[in-house]
Every structure is written in structure tokens, then in C-alpha cells.
């Protein structure tokens, strides 16, 4: 079979809803796009540990301390599942990691904002994880088997992430005046960056059409964003926080909530590395990576020595 025929068979399998597995034939561009998208997803989980990790030592009760620690730990786990799935495409995790630390690879723009009060932790759970769940639920049906399975596992584990955030935010929004102030302030700061998480509008999203044809994604950025907004408006009302968008209004005909203009200039700047926390986040991750080098080397050296000794003994 030539490449054209293989491509047709491949597309037919996708259209039939079959999963593609690592050793199956796939177009080079499919493989490249998957590596880009999956590793970007993995980097986001890892960088995402930093803003929330900022509050582990200050969480206001032992319960919340353990919840937060377990959640941030889950993010390390999710990063690991995703790297593990990406590695099935024949790339090394080390190369992927170094590509975002020292090269051009991207991670989600949302993690380039600071966590200023404890309410930020609650809002990240509610909005940021809420948005991530919308996205990952779709990706759990992705055409690439390992990616779909990783997302399925992530979704199962992540349901508590959103719940704990929403639950605590509800308490704060209905709590003391200081708690209410923190809660609303956090919602104000995180709302727009959360909407940007779904990526640029469809007409400016270069990869979307292709990814949908290959069933890597099944919905467009704007579709996902809309379903998130519809759900979130109701949730905000229930706990008494206001979404900072004066243009937000319900459209009777479509049955959807229409939202105001997203500040896309800010999005493009942050994506290109020029946001409030890009430099600091990368610096923290580089530091961990570089300061861990001697540990990783020591463990390899020990393994080498041990193997040598065992070889000699037998």
C-alpha cells in the first residue's frame, strides 16, 4: 500500500470510531500533532502544581491542607500519565520536558497567574478544574488509545478536584465579610483567564479542524467554551458570586448564555511567554530540574554499580 492508500484506511478507521494504537500505521502529521498536544497537556499539569502548591503550607485547616496536597499530588500523577502516553509515540520524556524548560513548547496560559489569597485555591478548583474537566471528558474519547485512556483515568480522579473547590468557595461566599471579599476578588481575577483556557476562537485556531477530522478532539474551542459558560453561570448564582462580565445574558432562542469580549490580546501575550508569572513559573521548574540532576545521576550510578557487582558475583 502506498501512503495515500494507508491514509485512506487510517481515516476510515477513525470515521468508524476505532482507536489507534502505538504500533498502528499513522500519518506523520497525526503523530506530530499528538506529540505537541499531549506533551503540552502534560507540561500544563506539572506547571499547574506551582500556583496551588503556593498555599499548601498555609491552608487554613488540616482537612484543607490534606485535600490540597492530595490534589497537587494528583496533578503530578496526571502529568506522569500524559507523559507516559506521549512516550508511546516514540519520544523521550526528558526531551519533552527540556523542550518546555529551554525551548519552544507551551503549556496552558492559565498557570501564569498568581494565587494571591486562599480563595484563589477554591476558584482554581471550581473554574480551572471545571474547564479542564470539560476538555478532558472530550479527550477521553480521543482517537489515540493511550491518550484516551490517560484522560479517562484523569477524569475519574479529577471529579473531587472541582467539588472541593466549589464546596469551599460556597462556604467563603456565604461566610464572613472578609471571606466574601476574598471569594469575589478571586472570581474577578480568574474568570477571563479561565475562558481563555479553551484556546483561541474557532476562526483563529489553526489546529482545530485537523484535530477534529482525526477525532483527536470532537468539539471546537468555542463549543467547549460555551458549554462551560452555560454550566458555570448557574453554579455562580447558586453560591452568590458574580461573574465579572456585564454583557453576560441569556439567549432564549439558542438556549445559551452569551458572554462579552474575551481580552484576546492578553491571551496571545501570555501564550508567548509575556504574562505576569511566565518567567517565575519557568524559573521554579528549571530550578527543580537542575537541582534534581545530581539525584537522578546518583540513582543511575548506584544501579550501574549494583548491576556490575551482581554480574561479578555470579
Amino acid at each position: 500500500m502506498d501512503t495515500k492508500e494507508k491514509s485512506d484506511v487510517f481515516q476510515k478507521r477513525i470515521d468508524n470510531g476505532e482507536k489507534i494504537e502505538p504500533k498502528d500505521w499513522m500519518p506523520e502529521r497525526y503523530r506530530k500533532q499528538l506529540i505537541r498536544m499531549m506533551s503540552q497537556h502534560a507540561h500544563s499539569e506539572i506547571v499547574g502544581m506551582l500556583p496551588e502548591g503556593n498555599w499548601i503550607t498555609r491552608a487554613p485547616s488540616l482537612k484543607r491542607k490534606m485535600v490540597l496536597l492530595a490534589k497537587v499530588q494528583d496533578e503530578a500523577g496526571h502529568g506522569l500519565y500524559l507523559y507516559s502516553a506521549t512516550e508511546t509515540l516514540g519520544v523521550k520524556r526528558k526531551d519533552l520536558v527540556e523542550d518546555y524548560l529551554y525551548g519552544k513548547a507551551k503549556y496552558s496560559s492559565i498557570f501564569n497567574y498568581p494565587t494571591l489569597t486562599y480563595a484563589d485555591i477554591c476558584v482554581i478548583g471550581w473554574l480551572v478544574d471545571g474547564a479542564a474537566i470539560v476538555n478532558q471528558t472530550m479527550l477521553a474519547k480521543s482517537s489515540y488509545g493511550p491518550y484516551a485512556r490517560a484522560n479517562l483515568r484523569i477524569c475519574k480522579e479529577e471529579s473531587f478536584h472541582k467539588k472541593q473547590g466549589y464546596e469551599m468557595l460556597a462556604k467563603m461566599a456565604g461566610g464572613t465579610p472578609e471571606q466574601q471579599k476574598m471569594a469575589q476578588d478571586a472570581v474577578n481575577r480568574w474568570w477571563w483567564p479561565t475562558l481563555m483556557m479553551f484556546g483561541p476562537p474557532d476562526e483563529e485556531s489553526p489546529n482545530s479542524a485537523e484535530l477534529i477530522t482525526w477525532a483527536v478532539k470532537t468539539k471546537t474551542n468555542d463549543e467547549l467554551r460555551q458549554s462551560f459558560v452555560d454550566r458555570t453561570v448557574m453554579e455562580a448564582r447558586k453560591i452568590g458570586v458574580t461573574l465579572p462580565d456585564p454583557d453576560l445574558k441569556y439567549n432564549e432562542e439558542t438556549g445559551h448564555w452569551e458572554y462579552g469580549e474575551i481580552p484576546w490580546d492578553e491571551f496571545w501575550r501570555v501564550i508567548k511567554g509575556d504574562g505576569p508569572m511566565n518567567r517565575e513559573r519557568l524559573k521554579a521548574r528549571r530550578k527543580a530540574y537542575e537541582e534534581g540532576a545530581w539525584v537522578r545521576e546518583a540513582a543511575m550510578e548506584y544501579a550501574r554499580k549494583k548491576k556490575y557487582r551482581e554480574g561479578k558475583a555470579s
Binding site: 496536597l69 506522569l80 530550578k287 539525584v295
Partner: peptide
């Protein structure tokens, strides 16, 4: 817990 997000390798962070 202060190590979370700063460990020498992902597996060790966990």
C-alpha cells in the same frame, strides 16, 4: 509538603 512541585524527578514528587 514543601517539596510538592519541586522534587528532583516527577516520580519522587509523588
Amino acid at each position: 509538603s514543601e517539596w510538592t512541585g519541586h522534587g528532583p524527578e516527577l516520580e519522587e514528587d509523588l
